[in-house]
């Protein structure tokens, strides 16, 4: 039997006195698309940052393809080449054009030749219709374009797992779609992903599983159909109600 791509066991993390992750455990098989939902400050982003080694944690185990990432001697630079991450604020490198943004990590971290990396970049840009922006600088792109380039930059490393941290939260509404479409496409292609998002309709369409968190704990894990139509817990019901408006009668 194939090992799970990602296994998280009893992950605990606290800042000073506040415990933000209270012993989370879950697994992710290859090809899974896990949407992590929950109110602000529930620890969703911290979870992603722990998986990518950006945030130290107190106890627990994270295994990637069966390999314990908390073991001594683990090189995070190598792990991160297999785990791509996309941030809410894009974080393209403003002093480099689109192509150089894409080439930096494959060239420096993977030691790819320039021609090989450029070919990979060209085909990715082609695929999302941004090939003509190759020489543009980040400041010349729209928010949606920037975020798509940021996704491609992570894909350049041919990661096995992609982490998305509220990647549409900073975008204007009309730009959200192009980014979500790209993510849906990746999901269809079989990419394993963990997505933190507030876009509930997208979550319903893209997720193979929904993990609902509140106050640093996993409250429920369900298939999207179950979660969005018959959430098992009251906390999940309450949370989903936030996205629901009822027409009120006018008072007079």
């Amino acid at each position: 039997m194939d090992v799970n791509l990602l296994e998280v066991e009893q992950l605990r993390k606290s800042y000073k006195d506040a415990e933000v992750l209270k012993g989370l455990s879950f697994t992710l098989a290859r090809g899974d698309v896990l949407v992590v939902a929950g109110p602000s400050g529930c620890g969703k982003s911290t979870l992603l940052r722990c998986i990518n080694g950006l945030e130290p944690f107190q106890s627990g185990v994270i295994r990637l393809s069966g390999r314990d990432l908390t073991a001594p001697g683990v090189k995070w630079t190598e792990v991160r080449q297999k785990v791509g991450m996309v941030f809410q604020s894009y974080e393209l490198f403003p002093h480099m054009n689109v192509l150089d943004n894409l080439l930096l990590a494959p060239r420096k971290a993977q030691g790819l030749s320039k021609s090989e990396a450029s070919a990979r970049a060209a085909s990715l840009l082609e695929r999302v219709g941004l090939k003509d922006k190759m020489k543009s600088f980040p400041r010349e792109l729209s928010g949606g374009q920037k975020q798509r380039v940021a996704i491609l930059r992570a894909l350049m490393m041919k990661p096995e797992l992609m982490l998305f941290d509220e990647v549409t939260a900073a975008l204007d509404p009309e730009m959200v779609r192009e980014v979500l479409d790209l993510m849906l496409e990746l999901a269809t292609d079989g990419m394993t992903m963990i997505i933190v998002t507030h876009e509930m309709q997208f979550a319903q369409a893209a997720a193979s599983r929904v993990l609902f968190m509140d106050e640093g704990e996993i409250v429920e894990t369900s298939s999207p159909d179950v979660f969005f139509t018959f959430p098992k817990t009251d906390r999940a019901k309450q949370f989903l109600n936030i996205f629901h408006f009822e027409k009120k009668e006018r008072r007079h």
């Binding site: 995070w76 630079t77 991160r80 991450m85 974080e91 490198f93 002093h95 971290a109 993977q110 490393m157």
Partner: peptide, 30 residues
């Protein structure tokens, strides 16, 4: 230079040194 710039460079698998040379310093100096 925003901390997130450093993090995004490191999340791509660059070492701290590479992050400093290619991402942080060029922006900081300008």
């Amino acid at each position: 230079v925003d901390k997130a710039q450093r993090e995004s460079a490191e999340s791509l698998g660059l070492t701290k040194f590479q992050t400093a040379i290619y991402v942080v310093l060029p922006q900081a100096i300008s």
